[in-house]
């Protein structure tokens, strides 16, 4: 006999199902219940940095947009600080860095407004390129999927990013690059996520 290790097991995940909005975005489900829904203002009014919009669709293995998906975003401010005690520094008053994103039920298109994050410290050495961490849940997704959105105009920072460089297949790295466009004077990045098939997005076990 040996001694028993006394760790608990993590609660297993289950799909968020088709009605995730009821719990996490009831306004989208079609009713008004909370005084304040959480996650609709990622950066807040006082955040420094470039104001950007990010938009895209999540596409399934048949090539169809997923209309009942929910994403959560987690990002640093323009100085590379997360709004968290271990986040590397202070953030502007009202900067949360976290948000929820749901799709248009008819088209599957989603979008959110934020500021472009700065570089964050690397795990061991160096710095990570600006990125937004995304977590994707939906009916049919058994465990929420983690990925990262990087910016296609950050060529130098991306080239030395430790996570991008960990992806053995260089052609797959481009699945994490949001494409910058200027639209009527506003900066819009396009980031389509493919759950499977040709050019499947890179997902991480974090």
């Amino acid at each position: 006999m040996i001694q028993k290790l006394d760790y608990l097991k993590e609660t297993p995940s289950q799909t968020a199902g088709p009605y995730v909005h009821i719990g996490l975005a009831p306004g989208a489900a079609g009713f008004d219940i909370y005084e304040k829904e959480l996650g609709w203002d990622i950066a807040g009014p006082n955040a420094n940095g470039e104001r950007i919009r990010i938009e895209g669709v999540v596409i399934d293995g048949t090539g169809s947009p997923i209309k009942d998906v929910m994403l959560e975003a987690w990002q640093a401010n323009s100085e590379g600080h997360y709004a968290h005690p271990e986040g590397g520094g202070t953030v502007e008053d009202g900067f949360k860095g976290w948000g929820r994103v749901i799709t248009d039920f008819e088209t599957g298109e989603w979008a959110f407004d934020t500021i472009k994050p700065g570089r964050t410290r690397g795990r061991d050495v160096g710095q990570q390129a600006p990125h937004i961490n995304l977590w994707i849940v939906a009916r049919g997704i058994n465990v929420g999927l983690n990925t990262r959105l990087y910016f296609d105009d950050e060529t130098e920072a991306n080239a030395v990013d430790p996570v991008l460089n960990l992806i053995e297949w260089e052609t797959r790295r481009s699945t994490l690059l949001a494409k910058r466009n200027d639209r009527d004077g506003h900066v819009v990045y396009r980031f389509d996520i493919k759950l499977q098939g040709h050019n499947e997005t890179v997902f991480f076990d974090i």
């Binding site: 293995g61 990125h131 759950l195 076990d205």
Partner: peptide
């Protein structure tokens, strides 16, 4: 049709 076909890439934790 909603499941990645490739393996997840394992990351050691960073500040993110």
């Amino acid at each position: 049709t909603r499941s990645p076909q490739y393996s997840l890439i394992s990351l050691q934790n960073s500040v993110s």
